[in-house]
């Protein structure tokens, strides 16, 4: 028990250090920007006196380490500064756009697990034969295709030519603002409002981007499932189960797959974290108003507060998911304690 507590303390220390590093790096990035933050605030027609006063007000005359401390304090209280582009606090901007990314990544991960896990199992069972090769090739294609290009091609085929899915965005324009904002996740909000027309419309908009993003998580999940399964299928308990006369289906899908569950959860968590960032390019293609879309747009208009705020949020979520999967692993697998 003591060892367990010790491990948790260590984990917490690592976490704090990593977060500190995240802040340090974003702070330094913010310092090397060629844009003068004072000039951005006062405009280039301000007199030298006004400029100097603004510089002192913004704390830019202090030594770098003091500036950093102030920065850490601000970030810890949720103050990422104002976005130049939207004239809103960056934090409230992020709160507005984050649910869209969350919705996309969650549905995509769901699709990735739904298809990726069975594909990995089938590949492992037929190791070296054609189903394995086909699944391996499918996975490698997923690793190799530029996601923004695949998105464009999909839009061209399914939206422009075949017209079986709606275009970019989260909703058709005449459904905007029909359901009250509760969680920001449209599928949930529409369901809460019992507005099934909006729900259906939101779902139809989700199909293409989440399928494309889901393909990437499928590539990763199926590959990892395959290697985890191969490890299990070599074990002697599998032989025992077969000798006992259990059906092949039961041996594979219950006994072997059941024993991969714990590491598989880690794999799925990692792929979920990767999707949160992988959605950047997808969001651009599908004009999906999420975090990636927000960060890139801010970047193109040199809105550094928004870019760095977004980076910190994505980084923190990333760290949190990694931590969560680690804790989950320790709790579920007694051997890891």
């Amino acid at each position: 028990m003591l060892g367990h507590a010790n491990a948790l303390v260590k984990l917490a220390a690592t976490l704090a250090l990593t977060f500190f590093g995240l802040l340090l790096v974003t702070f330094l990035i913010g310092r090397v920007v060629p844009i003068d933050p004072v000039l951005a605030a006062v405009g280039d027609r301000a007199s030298a006196a006004v400029y100097e006063r603004a510089r002192i007000e913004m704390g830019l005359d202090l030594p770098l380490w003091q500036q950093f401390l102030i920065y850490v304090q601000k970030v810890l209280t949720g103050d990422f500064g104002q976005s130049v582009l939207t004239a809103q606090p960056v934090l409230s901007d992020i709160a507005r756009v984050f649910p869209a990314t969350l919705e996309l990544a969650t549905v995509a991960t769901f699709l990735g697990v739904l298809f990726g896990v069975p594909m990995g199992v089938i590949a492992a069972v037929h190791q070296g034969r054609w189903p394995d090769q086909v699944i391996r090739l499918l996975g490698l294609i997923g690793y190799s295709v530029p996601i923004f290009w695949l998105g464009l091609v999909a839009l061209l085929v399914f939206y422009a030519k075949l017209q079986i899915v709606p275009g970019p965005g989260r909703l058709d324009i005449f459904y905007d603002d029909l359901v009250p904002w509760v969680t920001g996740v449209l599928l949930i909000d529409a369901a809460l409002a019992r507005n099934w027309i909006v729900w259906q419309n939101a779902l139809s908009h989700l199909v293409l981007p989440s399928a494309i993003l889901g393909y990437f998580s499928l590539a990763y999940i199926s590959r990892m499932t395959r290697s985890l399964m191969l490890e299990q299928l070599r074990q002697e308990y599998i032989l025992t189960a077969r000798v006992k006369g259990l059906s092949e289906t039961r041996v594979i899908w219950r006994h072997a797959l059941g024993n991969t569950a714990v590491p598989l959860i880690t794999v799925i968590a990692l792929s979920y974290a990767n999707l949160l960032e992988g959605s950047v390019l997808t969001e651009i293609i599908f004009a999906w108003p999420g975090l990636g879309f927000y960060i890139t747009n801010s970047l193109l208009s040199a809105d550094m507060n928004a870019v760095l705020g977004g980076t910190i949020v994505v980084g923190s979520v990333f760290i949190a998911i990694n931590l969560l999967s680690d804790v989950l692993y320790r709790t579920l697998d007694p051997r890891a304690r």
Binding site: L22, V280, L299, V307, G310, V314, G315, F318
Partner: peptide, 10 residues
């Protein structure tokens, strides 16, 4: 621990 693309963007 950083998301790679986002860090590269920044």
């Amino acid at each position: 621990a950083f998301p790679r693309l986002i860090l590269a963007l920044a």
